[in-house]
């Protein structure tokens, strides 16, 4: 564990707490893409298949349970919670995310560290996480103004993988046999997808204006 990875995990945890706060405090999921939440649920379920077989540390296991639990809880809320589901606007959340699932799985079948059930699903989860934010970013562009909590949720979610890139650089230089090129390349793509969001978020913060993404 190094400070970059810990900062990344904490930033990721904060993004989840901000999202839970928004949904439970406002009893509304307006501006949140159900499809992105479903993709993240698939990402965590596919990535943490080793949850009960490989014990790394208490921290590792607890965080995996938090990530799986929170993503499934949000999906459940947006689909079935009496009040919350009313604020979900499926007419705006129209990204065909099943193509992302199919494409990433196909890619994982060809590009992986080792051709085994666990490794293919792990690579699939890494590729899928890189593009999972697309439905959410498209929805924000469509819905124009972005409420503060949703903006902060996306900001922290984008920043966490940026910290992971610093972690991979650090580990590359401090550990001899470290090679996570699948995670690194995907992490770079993932963080790059947030670039324009970061830019507009910074502009809105500088001008102390409401965050607006150009359509």
């Amino acid at each position: 564990m190094n400070i970059f990875r810990f900062a990344g995990d904490m930033t990721h945890l904060i993004s989840i707490l901000v999202l839970l706060l928004k949904v439970y405090a406002t009893k509304s999921c307006s501006g949140i893409s159900l499809k992105t939440q479903e993709l993240y649920g698939i990402v965590f379920l596919a990535r943490y298949l080793d949850l009960f077989t490989d014990f790394i540390s208490v921290y590792n296991t607890v965080m995996k349970l938090v990530f799986i639990g929170s993503s499934l809880a949000i999906v459940w809320c947006m689909r079935f919670h009496r009040v919350v589901k009313r604020s979900y606007d499926r007419d705006v959340d129209t990204f065909r995310h099943y193509f992302l699932v199919g494409g990433c799985f196909l890619l994982a079948l060809f590009v992986h560290e080792k051709f085994s059930f666990r490794e293919v699903f792990w690579a699939f989860s890494i590729y899928l996480e890189a593009v999972a934010i697309l439905p959410q970013l498209i929805l924000l562009q469509r819905s124009g103004n972005v409420d503060n909590l949703t903006g902060q949720y996306v900001l922290f979610l984008g920043a966490y993988r940026g910290f992971y890139i610093l972690n991979w650089i650090y580990r590359y230089f401090t550990e001899d046999q470290f090679s996570r090129w699948i995670s690194c390349v995907s992490g770079l793509v993932q963080t790059a997808l947030y670039a324009d969001f970061f830019y507009y978020y910074f502009i809105s913060w500088k001008n102390n204006a409401k965050l607006k993404l150009p359509a």
């Binding site: 990875r5 990721h12 490989d54 590792n60 995996k64 560290e113 080792k114 792990w122 992971y164 995670s183």
Partner: peptide, 10 residues
């Protein structure tokens, strides 16, 4: 072929 290192990252 040595097994890839355990996935210690989240």
């Amino acid at each position: 072929h040595q097994a890839p290192p355990a996935k210690d990252e989240l």
